[in-house]
Amino acid sequence: MTEPVISVRDLRVEFVTRKGILRAIDGVSFDIMPGEVLGVVGESGAGKSVTGSAIIGLIEPPGRIAGGEIRLHGQRIDNLDPESLRRIRGRKIAMIFQDPLTSLNPLYRVGEQLVETILTHTDLGPAAARARAIDLLNEVGIPAPERRIDGYPHEFSGGMRQRVVIALALCAEPDFIVADEPTTALDVSVQAQIIALIRKLCRERGTAVMLVTHDMGVIAETADRVAVMYAGRVAEIGPVRDVVKHPLHPYAKGLMGAIPTLEAEAERLVQIPGSMPRLSNIPLGCAFNPRCERVFDRCRVERPDPNVPRFGLEGEAPLMPGHHVACHLYTRKTVETAS
């Protein structure tokens, strides 16, 4: 079995504020294999982006990594000094941001930004770096790259800029890319192109990707596995087919139920009543318990661990290998599981 590229164990991220310490990420664990795309979904504020920032080492004060481990190819990177971390950023781990319109420095030519990044991380000379920059632009699908390389960001369309952003992330052939809502700011037709591009790069280069989004359509199309986050915790994680088709966690069920489909003649979309708790006010036990329809006593006192074995409920689909859920509902051993 191959080693995971990124391994996150029991990660905790806290923000120190005047009102006290807010725990934005609380005990998050997952692995991502080479060439695998892990989709991370959840509402705004669920901790998706913070997890990405923590992996790439860009949590800014007052935020801090308060516990847990992040390993890159088995080596811890969460406790490195800033300079060593900088050398990893861009070279081993790259990040793609949400808004391509603001991710590029408006005063620098696209080529300058690419060449600077290449020169920082490789031994190439300026001429070779420029040639590589042109290759990269070509690879991400920018037409006439040898001409466009001297353009300024404002001369590119949104989709083209996101391609430039991806090219910038690929400069040093990283092993892992955090894509933080890479398609949210784009037109639907352009979204599909960007997703296809990320997918292709992933396949061809064996790059692992953590794809943060709240677009389930994007997840279904792109991800191999998906993690559903709620209030800074992983509620459910598993192969994308299983989680999207047969979500187990009541929150995940609600989330999937809120997606409109054309085939299903649904009367109304399912809503999850209430809203996500504030970080300062996360309830005891399961963070979802005040909104959960199937809540019972244990949910209010004991926090469910996603890593304990779970079992499918009677009359529902059995749990597949690799499908984990942090919910007490599936603890009762009333039914023998399929596997």
């Binding site: 900088r86 950023r89 941001f97 600077e116 990044t117 920082t120 910038l168």
Partner: peptide, 17 residues
Amino acid sequence: RTDYIKFAKARGLRTRS
């Protein structure tokens, strides 16, 4: 605080630059 500075940091550019 802008995104392009965050992105520059995420690319591991030198702090001086």
